[in-house]
Nucleic acid binder design. Structure first.
Length: 365
RNA sequence: CCAGCGGGAGCCGGGCGGUUAGGCAACAGUCUGUAAAACUGUCGUAGGUUGGUUCAACUCCAACCCGCUGGA
């Protein structure tokens, strides 16, 4: 059973980049997020099935969740200029071109679920379309209706396979609807009414302003909370998001940000020095010249393996020289930071001190 | 001493008689279900020195300085 709420780091290719499962466990990670599309292409879901699934393959003892490939409909659908490229959507499914070799593949809801059953994460997600932002209401409605039909197809295939393979994977339905209240609420009603094990909110953090994202979640939450199921917010996870969404009943969210930022040299911190704190966004760049001789840890008082042992000057040097250890130390720290902040939120929610905690961190409610 | 080759931004380095080389480094920034150890931006009177030719020279010419290689 997962703690609630939980932050979910992303390990697209069956690895949270640069860290071992043992290291993840040591910093309090309970679950991470793998991707169906990537693992289907390499090494192939059948290869992983031969091992008995992702758990055996990776030796990870915690939980896992796989994405359906739905997000790649969105992300591969854009090139650098935002034009459509590698994806074609039809009623039956999505035609993808592999970003690796250009080969053609076709995902249907059934196929995505089959692949996910082969991968055998504990939690899986229906095949959906992550609607690009902005979208016209007309397109958003069309995409939403299709996504709902795909949700039912995913659910049916999932039930069939759970029985056939005597597995007990948990399936999440996904709420879409772009930035239209009517569509979002309609989607929430529909997904909540179906026999899913959990409900995910998708189509957010796709380039929209943050207040819009908050609104979209708020339209939907009162409806799906009634279903009394786990609620996962897909692809969200800046530091303030933890407070805004865990505070309202979201039980988990995943985000590439802490790991990706870590590799780009940005470390999460709370206190930092005000001068270099970027607009209260809880991040700083370790390669900044000011850290060249800084003998303090990334976050004073932080109990992560990185901060307990190393100072900024050393990590600065590792990044400047592009040493592998730098990426590892930084990733450890950033994931610990998110996990630890989530832990504080969890405790505060239990103790009734959440508002105080949120105000301390964000300076607002 | 003779000959050949070469001198360009912090470093490396193509091209060219006129309008941006490029790369690295440096500096700053971006990232929200990972085509990402990625990407974006900024690097100011750059052209060994002095003269000459020309409307215009980093580019052509001369001398000198410095370096490398070979020879006496």
């Amino acid at each position: 059973m997962l703690s609630q709420p939980t932050f979910v780091p992303v390990g697209t290719q069956a690895t949270v980049k640069s860290l071992t499962p043992e290291e993840l466990e040591a910093i309090g990670v309970e679950i991470f997020f793998c991707n169906t599309y990537h693992l289907y292409l390499r090494p192939g879901d059948k290869a992983i099935k031969k091992f008995g699934g992702l758990h055996e393959f990776t030796r990870w003892k915690g939980q896992l969740i796989t994405d359906s490939g739905g997000f790649q409909v969105f992300s591969l659908g854009k090139d650098h200029n935002g034009a459509g490229k590698l994806v074609k959507i039809t009623e039956d499914g999505v035609e993808f071109r592999s970003h690796l070799d250009g080969s053609l593949h076709f995902f249907t809801p059934e196929k995505s679920i089959q692949i996910q059953h082969n991968l055998a994460a504990d939690n899986i997600i229906v095949f959906d379309e992550c609607t690009p932002y902005p979208a016209t209401k007309e397109y958003a409605r069309q995409a939403l209706d299709r996504t709902h039909r795909w949700a039912i197809r995913s659910l049916n295939e999932h039930k069939r396979l759970n029985k056939k393979l005597s597995q007990d994977l948990k399936l999440y339905g996904v709420v879409q609807g772009s930035y239209y209240k009517e569509l979002r609420q309609q989607s929430a009603e529909f997904i909540a009414s179906q026999d899913f094990d959990g409900i995910a909110i998708g189509g957010v953090s796709v380039g929209e302003p943050k207040d819009k994202m908050r609104k979209a979640v708020e339209w939907v939450l009162p409806i799906i909370l009634k279903a009394k199921k786990p609620i996962h917010l897909l692809g969200v996870g800046e530091v303030d998001d933890l407070f805004d969404f865990f505070g309202q009943g979201i039980t988990s969210m995943d985000c590439t940000l802490p790991t990706r930022m870590a590799r780009g040299g940005q470390f999460l911190h709370r206190t930092g020095d005000a001068k270099h704190d970027m607009h209260n966004k809880f991040k700083n760049q370790i390669m900044s010249a000011c850290y060249r001789t800084d003998q303090t840890p990334l976050e004073p008082g932080c109990q992560c393996p990185t901060c307990k042992q190393y100072d900024k000057a050393y990590i600065h040097h590792l990044f400047k020289t592009q040493e592998l250890l730098g990426y590892r130390l930084m990733t450890l720290h950033n994931i610990y930071f998110m996990t630890h902040a989530t832990q504080l939120i969890r405790d505060a929610l239990k103790n009734g001190t959440f508002n105080q905690l949120k105000k301390d961190w964000l300076g607002r409610l």
